[in-house]
Design a binder for these strands. Structure first.
Lengths: 229, 229
DNA sequence: GTCTATAGACTGATAGAC
DNA sequence: GTCTATCAGTCTATAGAC
């Protein structure tokens, strides 16, 4: 239908521009200019700029989470309900990294938009983002199944660090590229994923300061970080 | 002087508001309202909004880098020109984390502003940020001295991951807190620093791509074959 | 140096013809 | 559903009185 064509044209243009330049720097006029539709069409179809952003975020968030959980389930089923920690981390960061660092398909736009959304706290997204917590909690539980002896707090920190490395790699790939003068190959997506997975898995298995000998010359005393459960 | 009081009042108010809400969401009217000065004073003292941001960024950037390099030098001097990798990472991420996660002094504002600046690419900061590369390169070189056998590419990735974990911890401490239901104590600044340092040091020493195809488990080998490939 | 007042340009949103 | 035209509000920046 012609009605849907305008709607999806707006969504596509908005997602691409938002991914590139951020929410506050992209006006509705930029979007309708890119989509080749009329300015009033945005408010007719979505009501407001914020509702347009929210619709984009919800759609993409659900899709990404579905892929993550499918990968997680496949890994756990293959291991009889208990996947290697590397596989759990891979299911968490793989879909996002794969979407963002790959060839410039539409996928790169999607993941970049999601990163942008996680940074710029637009009101409509703030509310939705709380739902993301329960999604991440499922990965925390899977990690606990993978590492039954790990303390909860170490699991949470490991999950946090895994996402941190993945997101920063997407967000600031340019700096890494300049710093390494091209030595860090960001085009090798699977290689990047394995680097993040390896680093996060190391942090999860051996990275708790409680199970790590304190640095010889630690100037400040650490508090006791681990309270089992 | 009265002339300096207006100027610094603007700088303080601007830094605090920018740190809290980002550049594009804070107007000059917000700033002068907070500072208790007149709107025209901003343009009189700084010329434009962008130049105000740039002045803030340059000042804080220089100060942070100075602290980082002082810590690095102290660590390398103590080790005869070669510091443990943990000390190098600690000099890199410690000052920023310490400034951001500590008690709500003026320091938290400073570091939060810098994180904000590294995210939102305002034109004046984009140019200055390239200078940051050469600063980071000094840390890459120090890491190479600490780990002479490591490949350059692994050094760059490790440095990148260290900054990623530190920045994300500052930026998204709220999510980590909610996810862990308060188990992850972000008030224990030195504890957080050690977690980041430990995880980054592990990635730097054991996270090389040699473990890409055949993941070499660290001390905590759990005799479980990888379910992947 | 500090103020008032305002210019000039943009924004998101809407009313009403078709 | 799509368009034109326009509103009311916001912004940065500046001119000119004091």
């Amino acid at each position: 239908m012609a009605t849907d064509r305008t709607r999806t044209a707006i969504l596509n243009a908005a997602e691409r521009l938002y991914a590139e330049r951020g929410f506050s720097d992209v006006t509705l006029r930029d979007i309708v200019g890119e989509a080749g539709v009329n300015l009033a069409a945005v408010n007719y179809h979505f009501g407001s700029k914020d509702e347009l952003i929210a619709e984009l975020y919800v759609t993409r968030s659900i899709a990404t989470n579905r892929i993550r959980l499918a990968e997680l389930k496949a890994a756990e089923d293959a291991g009889g309900g208990r996947a290697p920690i590397e596989a759990v981390v891979r299911a968490l960061v793989g879909p996002t990294l794969r979407g963002c660092l790959g060839p410039a398909t539409e996928n790169t736009t999607i993941a970049r938009f999601m990163i942008r959304a996680s940074i710029e706290s637009v009101p409509p997204i703030r509310k939705i983002r709380n739902r993301e917590i329960s999604h991440l909690r499922r990965f925390a539980q899977a990690m606990k199944r993978s590492l039954p002896d790990a303390a909860d707090v170490d699991i949470y920190w490991g999950l946090h660090f895994a996402l941190a490395m993945a997101h920063q790699t997407i967000r600031d790939s340019e700096r890494l590229n300049k710093l390494s003068e091209g030595a860090c190959d960001l085009g090798d997506v699977e290689g990047v994923i394995e680097r993040v997975v390896t680093a996060a898995a190391l942090a999860l298995t051996a990275g708790s300061p409680s199970s790590y000998k304190a640095p010889a010359r630690a100037a400040t005393a650490r508090g006791r970080p681990t309270a089992r459960d």
